[in-house]
Design a protein around this nucleic acid. Structure first.
Length: 597
RNA sequence: GGGGUGGUAGUUCAGUUGGUUAGAACGUCGGCCUGUCACGCCGAAGGCCGCGGGUUCGAGUCCCGUCCAUCCCGCCA
């Protein structure tokens, strides 16, 4: 071994021992006659004392630079009381260097490599030198937390008798769902695989195959635009089990989360998780993944305004819309700019504007005030608990849109309130939530047909199944989302395991042409006709869990080598052009868009 | 595809109403320094102001286009 101890290990009890450390030079303090080198590895730092009688002292110091890798052999010495560094685990000792082996001299890094400073550096530069960015202690911590979390999940599932089974990444293209990455098949000219966007179909086949309990830390690939919480490739803790119902799945997952939080953070989380109907989540929080760490709940005023003299509201209600309001408590001092930004956000979700009432003392200020009756004002005041300094926002739209608009205004208002110190959203509070009973189908205006809310394999709630033909929109699915602090961290469902029902959903409800069903899903329907067990599953986003565990705002910090918003790896420079030879082998002709087109 | 923010020294930033020689801090380099720990002190170098056009006597600053990063909408069964 190149070392006897790590750089975080030595203590006063080690004084006198001969040790060998190896690591990176964190900083050199050269006093001319004596020098100190802080040597760093992932476990910590140790001060190395370099005495002027060291042979070649001047030459060595001249060439050593921060981030160089050196091996230090020496003796552990106690520091004088005055020189103890209480901010360091190894601060009571230092290693007096007897022999230093220079393993690698580092160039000057292109940006400061120090927690607290590197975060401010442009993302593109950090990504180009990702190996330097990752060298910081905090990044090591994020990688470690993710690793511990995944291992905790594995341990829990193994104990419950789940088998870890790998499924192919090279799959076939599926008609519904995310855009896929295509992979040309050299030996099948003109044909393509698709990189698996999730192991969904394979894991159901494993249930038909009698594996009963499966899990996998699966890579998934989706060729969609990126977000702070979305990368084109990401990992899922993918789970499927036979002979279970929803309650069984909740118990499995709650146990797994308990284990993850205990192992990764030492935190005991409360189980079982509360449950909320999709309808409820939308009505109260305006999203299907509510952050319940703070209130600012949305309140319905459709009945109050049904016969209102305010024709805008009454008219929308007459056309089947709703009127909702949300009291952004304490945001009465929102600036013009902030109001404008909130309105833009609302408009981006389809609002025509963002009506509001600003409360200043007992006075209400609002462009819509003159349209409101005393009765209506009283209803608002009482149901929204309006007080001095409040700001009330309105949405009058179709139900789902009204909910979404105020949901967005709610989260944006919360951010503004946090900035003002009037709202606390603690990062170490973990509000798990099951959101359940989503509609099985959603009507897609663009396509003029129903699409599966979750995916087409989700089983309907039994008592709603008879509505599949008459009123598909009213059918609830046996779908469950696991929501944590406003993030959808996992989602799954009890699946359809009867071929007739599955075929009906494909063809009659989703209106997928029979020949397409046959070519894409024929093998599943066939498999279900050979004795398919009732089964269900769920999948968790590893990065999202890790991001919350580490208190990050996005998933980049818990991905070792993330891609930019354009899907590029700036370190390795991918994607890149293929050689003519590669293209020829793959039977591919590249046709680039005209410049400027 | 659309909207917002940012791009000035290696890094983070400042740069007034368009005005003459574009600044600071950190880092780097050189010198001094035997108990520092973000060591200190002295000195120096370092700029295609993202890129391309335009307006102007004059552009880091104004206009148009474009590239990159980032946040959001669409999209993500």
């Amino acid at each position: 071994m190149k070392r006897t101890h790590t750089c975080g290990q030595l203590r006063i009890a080690d004084v006198g021992s001969s040790v060998t450390l190896i690591g990176w030079i964190d900083v050199i303090r050269d006093h001319g006659g004596i020098s100190f080198i802080d040597l760093r590895d992932r476990e910590g730092k140790t001060q190395v004392l370099l005495h002027p009688d060291y042979v070649g002292y001047n030459e060595l110091l001249a060439k050593l630079k921060p981030e160089s890798v050196i091996q230090v052999k020496g003796t552990v010495k106690a520091r004088d009381a005055a020189n103890v560094n209480t901010g360091m685990g190894t601060g009571e000792v230092e290693v007096e260097a007897a022999d230093i082996v220079v393993e690698n001299i580092a160039q000057t890094p292109p940006f400061p490599m120090e927690d607290g400073k590197t975060e401010k550096v442009n993302e593109d530069l950090r990504l180009q030198y990702r190996y330097l960015d990752l060298r910081r202690p905090s990044m090591y911590g994020f990688m470690k937390t993710r690793s511990v979390a995944v291992n905790a999940a594995r341990a829990h599932l193994n104990e419950l008798g789940f088998l870890e089974i790998e499924t192919p990444y090279l799959f076939k293209s599926t008609p519904e769902g995310a855009r896929e990455f295509l992979v040309p098949s050299r030996v099948n000219p003109g044909q393509f695989y698709a990189l698996s966007q999730s192991p969904q179909q394979y894991k159901q086949m494993l249930m038909v195959a009698g594996m009963e309990r499966y899990y996998q830390i699966a890579r998934c690939f989706r060729d969609e635009d990126l977000r702070a919480d979305r990368q084109p490739e990401f990992s899922q803790i993918d789970i499927e089990a036979s002979f279970i119902d929803r309650e069984d799945m909740y118990a499995i997952v709650e146990g797994m989360m308990k284990r993850i939080w205990k192992d990764a953070l030492g935190v005991d989380i409360q189980t079982p998780f509360p449950r909320m109907q999709f309808q409820d989540a939308m009505n109260r929080y305006g999203v299907d993944k509510p952050d319940t760490r703070y209130d600012l709940e949305i309140v319905d005023f459709t009945e109050e305004f049904r016969n209102s003299a305010f024709k805008v509201f009454a008219g929308i209600i007459a056309n089947g819309g709703v009127v909702k309001a949300m009291n952004a408590k304490g945001l009465g001092d929102a600036t013009q700019g902030e109001m404008k930004t909130l309105e833009e956000a609302a408009k981006s979700l389809g609002a025509k504007g963002l009506a509001f009432i600003r409360v200043n003392g007992t006075e209400w200020k609002s462009p819509i005030l003159k349209f409101l009756s005393e009765e209506e004002k009283a209803a608002l005041a009482s149901k929204l608990n309006i007080e001095d300094g409040d700001m009330v926002f309105f949405a009058a739209e179709k139900w789902e849109r009204a909910c979404s608009i105020l949901g967005r205004v709610r989260t944006d208002s919360a951010k503004l309130l946090v900035e003002r110190g009037r709202l606390d959203i603690p990062k170490d509070k973990y509000n798990f939530l099951w959101v359940i009973e989503f509609p099985l189908m959603t009507y897609d205006e663009e396509q003029g047909r129903f699409v599966a809310t979750h995916h087409p394999f989700t089983a309907p709630v039994p008592e709603d199944a008879h509505l599949l033909d008459s009123n598909p929109h009213a059918v609830r699915g046996q779908h469950y989302d696991c929501v944590l602090n406003g993030w959808e961290v996992g989602g799954g469902s009890i699946r359809i395991h009867q071929p007739d029902l599955q075929k009906k959903v494909f063809e009659d409800v989703l209106k997928i042409p029979a020949d397409v069903v046959e070519s894409r899903f024929g093998y599943m329907l066939k498999a279900f006709s050979y004795g398919a067990p009732p089964h269900g599953g769920i999948a968790f986003g590893v990065e999202r869990l890790a991001a919350i565990l580490t208190g990050r705002n996005g998933i980049r910090d818990v991905v070792a080598f993330p891609k930019t918003q354009k899907g590029q790896d700036l370190m390795a420079n991918s994607p890149s052009e293929a050689t003519p030879r590669q293209l020829k082998d793959l039977h591919i002709a590249v046709s680039l868009p005209q410049q400027g087109a």
